[in-house]
Structures are given as C-alpha cells and as structure tokens.
Computed example of a mutant assay.
Amino acid sequence: MKKTFILGLFASALFFSCSSDDEETPLVADFTATVSGESPNAEIIIVNNSTGASAYEWSFSEGADISSSEEQVPTVKVDKAGDLTISLIAINGSNEEKTTKTVSVSGNTAITTFNDVEFGLNAGDATYGRLFSLETGEIYKDSEISSDNGSKINLAFGSMANTMYFFESPTDEDYNVPGAIATKVTNYEETPSITVEEFDAMTNDGKLSGLTIEETNDSFGNGSIPNTVLFETSTGRKGVIKTKAVNSDRLLVDIKVQKY
C-alpha cells in the first residue's frame, strides 16, 4: 500500500515537472511594421509579436525621429523617403533573439531651412562672413576659419566690384579653407529650375530630388535679385539659395537643403 502511494506521488511530481518545462514560453523576437502616410510626415505602426521577453531593444535607421528605444511598442515618425530598417532584440535574462525588417516609405524627404543669412561682399570683412556651414548652420568670417571647422564649410561667397556676385565651392584657393570639401554651384539660370515663388512654398525636397546640378562658374548681378541659386554638396545633398536683398556690405539670403 505504501509503495503504491509513494510511486503515485513520484509519477505525479514527474508529470507536473515535465508539464512545467513543456509550457515555458520560447524567446522569439518578432514584430510587424506598417507605414501610415507619406514622408516627411509618415508614421510607422509597430505591433510587437515577440514571446518570452522581459525587455526590448529597438534600433532605427536614418530618417526616423528616434534612433533607438527600449519601449515594448515605440512610436516612430519618419521624414525620409525610401527604405527604413528596423531591428528588434528581445531579451530574457542573458538570452537574446534578434530580428530585422525593412519597410518602404513613399513621399519626399524633409528639408532644412536657414533664414536671413548675411554673406559679406568683401574679403576679410570684420562684420560679415563669406563662408557657410550646413552642418552648424553658421556663417563664418575669414578670420574664424581653422583646421577644426574647415571641413564643415559647404558654401563660399564672392563678389566682383560689388556688382556681380557668385557662390562657389570653398575649395577655391581664394578662401584658404583647410580641409575644404567640394560643392557644385549653378549661380544663374535664364529659366530658373526653382522660382522664388516655388522656393517659398517648398516644405520637402520634391523640387530638388530630380535636379541635375552642374558647376557653371557664372555669376548674377543686382538686376537678378531676388532669384535662386542651386548647389549640391559632396555628399549629394541638393539645395537652393534664394537671394533677397543686397547693399554695399552684404547679400541677404534664405537657404533650403535636403536634410539627408
């Protein structure tokens, strides 16, 4: 009788032990991602289908408004058209599982705008600078250029007798920019690819992305202000400058350029 009872207890314990092991939830990293809307105002709707995880690590490629998140279901907005890569690591203790997926975002890419930038007409001017950085959003005087900031300069400005004006690459020897990188500039078009009115209405890079920008080595005069000047950086970012007003000391402009 006692042997039968003990054997029954052993069998029951073994059953429950095996059942508990079988019912452990496996660690799986999985999610679905769908795109709502178009760039630069797109949103990624994420559903986290992971199992067995106690923590999550997300990463997002360029264009997302966040680069990483530890939330179970992050909220992500995207302002860049094209492919967006999303990676998820599901974590349980020392165990990790990773999955990566790519979604395609339609529309256009965001632009960055710089308003009321003042370019000096004269070399060595102590008040106005001739060199502009899209990275910092700052204009620099000739005396402020150094090996620390030279490689950040994208646009240089010059004038001839204060009547003809031109933007050009800071690699030109006239500007003495250490580590300068090349920029292509089209200073004047008889029929502008982007008019002043179109510039003012631009909220994304729809007008810029399809342009072919050539280095023309030309200039523009007082009579063609306001007008637009096209440029392309060494990294392929395209932009447009709207010239607004000029006096004996400086040229006043706005600048719009692709964010990526």
Rank of each mutant, 00 (worst) to 15 (best):
P74T: 08
L7E: 08
K259F: 02
F157H: 00
S19C: 11
I44P: 03
A182F: 13
C18W: 13
D200K: 15
F231Y: 09
I91A: 03
Y175S: 03
S104Y: 12
T113R: 08
R130N: 05
T233N: 05
T233W: 00
S94G: 09
P192V: 11
V177Y: 04
T25S: 14
F15C: 13
E173C: 00
L84D: 05
N48Y: 04
P192Q: 06
K101F: 03
A182C: 00
Q72L: 12
G120W: 01
F114D: 05
F220M: 11
K80F: 07
I44K: 01
A13L: 15
I139L: 09
E38N: 14
A33Y: 02
R250L: 09
E215Q: 15
S234M: 06
S219T: 09
T109I: 07
A161R: 12
N247V: 09
G124Y: 12
G82I: 11
V240R: 01
E62L: 10
N227R: 11
T113E: 15
N204Q: 07
D218E: 11
S234V: 11
I145T: 06
Y175P: 05
V28D: 08
A201N: 13
S169H: 06
T212P: 03
T195C: 10
Q72T: 12
F31D: 12
T136H: 06
N162P: 02
S54Q: 14
V78P: 00
D79V: 04
N92V: 05
A90V: 01
I111Q: 03
T171C: 12
F199V: 09
N49D: 14
D254R: 05
F157T: 02
G158A: 10
G63K: 00
A29L: 08
T183I: 11
T243N: 05
I46T: 06
E215M: 08
A123L: 12
A245K: 14
N115F: 06
L208C: 08
V246S: 02
T32R: 11
D125C: 03
Y140K: 13
E118N: 14
V47C: 00
I255E: 05
I225C: 10
F60K: 05
M164A: 14
I46A: 06
A156D: 04
D174C: 02
V240W: 00
A11R: 00
A81G: 04
L134E: 01
N92M: 05
A161N: 15
A180C: 08
K77Q: 14
T235R: 06
E24F: 07
D249R: 13
S104P: 00
G129Q: 04
V246H: 01
F167Y: 05
N247C: 06
M160T: 14
L88Q: 04
D83I: 08
K242V: 08
L230I: 07
I194H: 03
M160E: 12
F220W: 11
G179W: 09
F231R: 01
I153P: 01
A11N: 02
S50Y: 06
D125Q: 03
T75M: 12
L7D: 07
N204T: 12
I45F: 00
G179Q: 09
K256M: 11
Y56V: 07
Y128R: 10
D125H: 10
A53H: 00
E57P: 00
E144N: 08
G129I: 08
S106T: 15
F199C: 08
T243V: 10
S50Q: 11
I91P: 01
S209V: 15
V105K: 01
Y140C: 06
E173S: 15
F5V: 15
E190I: 13
N108Y: 14
I66E: 01
S20E: 13
P226A: 08
A29R: 01
F166Y: 15
